[in-house]
């Protein structure tokens, strides 16, 4: 039994998700190798090699893998996954894009977004926006699994795995990279932040959404948003927390002006401590909040900022 993990990286930096996926792979048992594909990946490979519990870091460095487009990435993985029993990646936008393509090319199903491992072939995952937890067993020769990173603690960085370059170059005539418009959010990343301050429709406008900034800066928090706030244009899409956005589990989640639709709760209800600030005392968010404060958020937020 052995696992290949697709490593996620951006702008020459290793994504935090990989250390969590390795933790899931170690729970399976067996050897763990990482695959780093891209153009100019030496620094990412070196950082990946420091993660604990890794046997080897395989690199595929070529212009065709730049931007990690799904078509060439899937073809590459198909070419090097034969020796493995498991293929894992984070259930991030990149993992969600690439992994099912690999699974289909290999003629096997995928289990998405696992939150626990019962046995090397048996996994738990949320369904129906987290209203139910399914346990599935996978009897395919290659088990393709995407991992909810917030459900597995990151491994440490004291390793020194071997780095080995693969000489595999694939064709890509299907897709071309045009451009990125990456949001410039200051502060920590949503997926790895210890504290998240998240805003909803109750904020009323994109100007008001900046009310969150003061508290977020004081707490070193990442900013999040409900779908309603993103749809209304108060916040950018990459901030959306929920069933179809990001799933987070910080130590502290402060929901501001968020009513608490089940689709939003699906993305944050595993946070350690939840605070809800809302004018409507009937808002469902209070039902799951450890500390609810009913009040006008335009008074509460400045007051909170001044007391932190």
């Amino acid at each position: 039994m052995s696992t290949l993990i697709l490593v996620e990286h951006r702008d020459g930096a290793l994504a935090a998700s990989t250390a969590h996926v390795i933790a899931a792979a170690r729970a399976l048992g067996g050897e763990v190798d990482l695959l780093v594909a891209g153009e100019g990946v030496d620094a990412v490979a070196a950082a990946a090699a420091r993660l604990d519990g890794v046997r080897a870091v395989l690199t595929a460095d070529h212009a065709v893998y730049a931007h990690q487009l799904a078509e060439p990435m899937a073809a590459l993985i198909v070419a090097c996954v034969d020796d493995y029993s498991h293929l894992l990646a984070a259930a991030s936008s990149s993992g969600k894009d690439i992994l099912p393509r690999v699974a289909a090319l290999k003629g096997v199903p995928q289990i998405s977004d696992i939150i626990a491992i019962e046995a090397p072939d048996t996994f738990k995952r949320p369904i129906y926006a987290g209203s139910a937890i399914a346990t599935l067993s996978n009897h395919a020769p290659l088990k393709v699994v995407s991992v909810r990173t917030s459900a597995f603690d990151a491994v440490a960085e004291t390793g020194s795995a071997e780095i080995r370059a693969l000489d595999i170059v694939v064709d890509n005539t299907l897709s071309t990279f045009v451009g990125d418009e990456l949001a410039t959010n200051s502060g920590p990343e949503l997926g790895s932040a210890r504290v998240i301050v998240s805003g909803g429709r109750g904020l009323g406008s994109s100007e008001n959404f900046q009310l969150l900034d003061g508290v977020a800066v004081k707490l070193g928090a990442a900013i999040g948003a409900s779908r309603a706030a993103v749809d209304a244009g108060y916040a950018s899409n990459d901030l959306q927390v929920g069933q179809t956005g990001k799933v987070v589990a910080p130590d502290l989640y402060i929901a501001v002006g968020i009513s608490g639709a089940i689709q939003h709760l699906a993305g944050m209800k595993d946070s350690k401590v939840i605070v809800a600030i809302n004018q409507d005392e009937e808002a469902p968010i209070f039902g799951i909040a450890d500390y609810g404060l009913v009040g006008d958020l335009f008074e509460v937020m400045p007051a909170l900022e001044s007391r932190l």
């Binding site: 096997v108 199903p109 289990i111 048996t122 949320p126 369904i127 987290g130 209203s131 139910a132 937890i133 399914a134 346990t135 599935l136 067993s137 996978n138 009897h139 395919a140 209800k269 939840i274 209070f286 039902g287 799951i288 909040a289 450890d290 500390y291 609810g292 404060l293 009913v294």
Partner: peptide, 19 residues
């Protein structure tokens, strides 16, 4: 390849206290 072994209700979160 895939078999659904069981489906459970997740543990409910204890919330509801106000400040």
């Amino acid at each position: 390849y895939l078999r659904l072994e069981r489906v459970e209700t997740p543990a409910a979160r204890q919330g509801g206290s106000k400040v």
